[in-house]
Structure formats: structure tokens, C-alpha cells
Design a protein around this nucleic acid. Structure first.
Lengths: 232, 232
DNA sequence: TTATAACCGGAGTAATTCGCTCCGCAAGTT
DNA sequence: AACTTGCGGAGCGAATTACTCCGGTTATAA
């Protein structure tokens, strides 16, 4: 990212290919789940398999990079949300941005990739940012009092994919993709409105624990200790 | 279903196995997508592959049966919803029931199975029932005026799976499965509250067309004509 | 008990799909 | 021309697939 000086047209093409690759990987991963094949990803990106393997030594390396970029995006969105004046708009825009970027693509690879130190640090930071976003919205009384940060994380994950969109993409129905994307935004807007403080009846069940996230990314690294807290 | 008279303990075991098979198929399909293997389904059901193939001549036959049962469940839930006195509770319970049953398991096989005449008839009937449910809620002014039946269908599909639940099941973390299921219900309750009429701001974009559903189940049967309407 | 029938689980099989390597080729630079 | 740089995809061994087939187990009958 700091070294994006292009020194020739070949380098430029390589960068474009890399971006297309990551973009395609998100889409294919969302549509095919963890079994997504490198051939499918390369084809969706419009590049050859060879180009994929020149940049990433293995399939897992590509997925690892994808996870890191997603965390970066998540944190950027959270910072932008905190920068907004209105606490509600800040939280809502954060949710929408994360869901559209496709955070949900990560769920199928949660147990398969190795979690690096950097990723864990970024994940911790995202927990803090989200907790701040939630605390601010609570203090302003615009967010339902019994909604927690974990609820929000689960909601974002739930909307990280669109089943309709994924399937239409796999069928190659380019004509309907835009309509499906718009519809997905609509349904997400409905769900976000459900977070507003105007709803008096309490939510069912107890607030979920953040085990639902921390435990899923363990991957036999003996890492089961709580790494973050979701309360401010 | 009319012939459930058991004539011996062997038949009873066969019935239990069949139910376990269908239940497991829904779970594995949700977790693994369309590539879900018969071996995985049989293992999740706790039966041998042989038992699966004694009841269903092929993988597609199992999926077809699954789709039909889902439609039956959908219609039953809709009828129960219409039978309720309160229009809002009727619609809300319908949504929750469908989402929990795992309507979302069908999305990954949408393009792969042959759509029978019966299935299309049941699908048409479900469209009518949902339209009635929505119309009633609109007339009672308890449902946001700009929410359509297609919006509701998409919301149900969106909540037909839980990424967290699916992954925990695949990891065999039985201890967290109940927590994930409860959390999923919570998030769904949030989204359902977003449908209430108390929200004044209109939803973004235009109401989605039902092409988003009809086109996805076509499967080269030359069937592209509109089969139902979603407005009352 | 033994014979029979019904149903079970899963090893085995051919075909497919997988991740990945390797090499011939086109484009830019000197 | 010669050299460098990045490209696409054929091909390979390994893994996975849907499905078949058969030996074992349980319930009933004589």
C-alpha cells in the first residue's frame, strides 16, 4: 500500500489483476463456501491460474490476505463511523459498509486459515471501535438499550452475504445482479431500523457472549482465552 | 404421511432414520452449500450411506424431497399465521417459523434440482398466502407501508441460515450450538421489529420484483413466464 | 433352536475435481 | 536483436465424489 508507485505498464496490470483476484475471491467464497476452488476464483477474476499463484504461494495465503483486508476495511469503517457527528448515523453507516463489503465471506474460512499476530491485533482493535460506537449510541439513547456489540457483529455477519445475489452471480445473470444488490440493501435497512430505540419490547433470550466469535477462529492454536471484551 | 402405521420395530427405525436424514440434509446443505456430499449428510444423520440410498435413488431425489417439505412447511406456517387474530403476530410468527426451519438451505440447490408440477403449485399457493398475510398487516397499519411481499421473502431467505451456527456445527462445538441458535433468534427479532409501521422514513431504492425468485428456480425448463403476483 | 425376511453400515469403484507446477508466449525495454 | 517481466492454461498426482454391493444384525415364524 505504501509502495504503490508503478514503474511500468506491466506493474499496473499486475496491480489490477491483484485487485480483481481479491474481489473475485470474495464473491466466489460467498457463493461456494469454503470449498471454493482456485480455478473458479481465477476464472471469476478473468485471469489465469498462473497469475494467481505468482502472487500467492498457496490458496491459504490468498485467504489470509483476504481476511486481513476485511479487518482493515472493518476498522476503517468503524473509524469513519466514529468521526460522524450523529451517533446513530455513525453506527448505521458502519453496519451498512461492513455488510456490503462482504464480511460474511470470511465465515466459511474461519477455521481453515492461520490467524496471525497482526490479524489478532486488528481484531482486538475492531472490538474496541465497535464497543465505542455502541456505547456512544447507547448514551445518546438512539440504540435499543438491550442491544449489545455482539448482536451487532452477528447482524453484520448475517448480512455479509446475499443468497440471492450469490446464486444469480453463479448463474451469470448479470441483468438481475443490480436488482438483487439493491434489494439486499433494502432488507438490511429494515434490519437496521430494528435496532432503533423506538422499540419498547425487550429482545428474546439473553445477550449473546462473544465466544460466538472468539471460539470460531481458534484453529488449534491453543488460543481459547478471551482476547477482548465487548462492553465499554 | 397417510401411511405412518408402523407394522414393526424395523419400520419404526426406518422412519426415524428418514427424519434424521432430512434434518441432517438441511444442516449440511446450509453449512456446505450445494457441494454438500452424501457421505457428510449420512454421517450427520448418524446412518450409513446404504440406508440413504435405499430410500432415495439419487442425491437429487433427496434434495427434491427436501424442497417439497420446505414448501409444505412454509405453507403450513402461513396458514397458521393467517389463523391468528392479530395481523402483526400472524405475520411475525410466520417469518420466524420459516427462518428457523431453514428455508435458506434451499438456495444453494435452487438451480440444480428439477422443479416438479406439484412444487410449482405449492410455490404458487405460498405466494398467495404470503400476499394475504402482508395485505392484512397493511390494512391494520401495523406493517411499514412500503414493505412488499418480496421484501419479506428476501428477509426470510436472509435468515434461513446462520453462518455462526453452521460453522459451529461443522466444528462439532455442541456446547455453543444452543447459544448460537438463541443469538440467531435475537437478531431475527431485531430485523422483524424493523418491519413495524412505527418507522417513518421510507426504505431506500425501489420495491424489488419477484423475478429475484422466479428466475432463480428456472433450471432450463424454458420456464420464464411469471407464475404468480405478489400484490393483493 | 433354525430359517427367513427386512434392514442396517460401510468398504470398494470409477470418474471427477482438486491444488499446484511448469512452460511456451506476448509485451515492454535497451 | 537480446533480454526481462508477467501472462495463460495444459498437465499431474492426490483427494473427493456419487453410487453399488455385500456381509452382518435384528425381529418374526416354525
Amino acid at each position: 500500500m505504501t509502495e504503490s508507485k508503478r514503474r511500468g505498464p506491466r506493474q499496473a496490470e499486475a496491480e489490477r489483476n491483484d485487485r480483481a483476484l481479491l474481489r473475485a475471491a470474495r464473491q466466489v467464497l460467498a457463493a461456494d463456501g469454503g470449498h471454493a476452488s482456485v480455478a473458479a476464483i481465477a476464472a471469476a477474476a478473468g485471469v489465469g491460474i498462473g497469475s494467481l499463484y505468482r502472487r500467492y504461494r498457496t490458496k491459504e495465503e490468498l485467504f489470509q490476505r483476504l481476511a486481513e483486508l476485511s479487518l482493515d476495511n472493518w476498522n476503517q469503517a468503524a473509524e469513519r463511523g466514529l468521526a460522524e457527528d450523529d451517533p446513530w448515523e455513525g453506527l448505521a453507516s458502519f453496519i451498512v459498509t461492513c455488510a456490503e463489503f462482504g464480511q460474511g465471506s470470511l465465515a466459511p474460512i474461519a477455521g481453515t486459515i492461520e490467524v496471525t499476530k497482526e490479524m489478532r491485533a486488528k481484531s482486538d482493535r475492531s472490538d474496541e471501535l465497535l464497543a465505542a460506537l455502541v456505547a456512544r449510541a447507547h448514551q445518546a439513547r438512539v440504540l435499543r438499550p438491550d442491544v449489545t456489540a455482539v448482536d451487532i457483529s452477528l447482524l453484520i455477519e448475517q448480512f455479509g452475504r446475499s443468497p440471492a445475489l450469490d446464486q444469480l452471480r453463479k448463474q451469470g445473470r448479470e441483468d438481475l445482479i443490480q436488482a438483487a444488490a439493491d434489494a439486499h440493501k433494502r432488507v438490511l435497512a429494515i434490519a437496521v431500523d430494528g435496532l432503533r430505540a423506538c422499540h419498547s419490547r425487550p429482545l428474546p433470550g439473553n445477550p449473546p457472549t462473544d465466544q460466538l466469535f472468539t471460539e470460531r477462529w481458534a484453529h488449534e492454536t491453543g488460543q481459547s482465552r478471551r482476547a477482548s471484551s465487548t462492553s465499554a
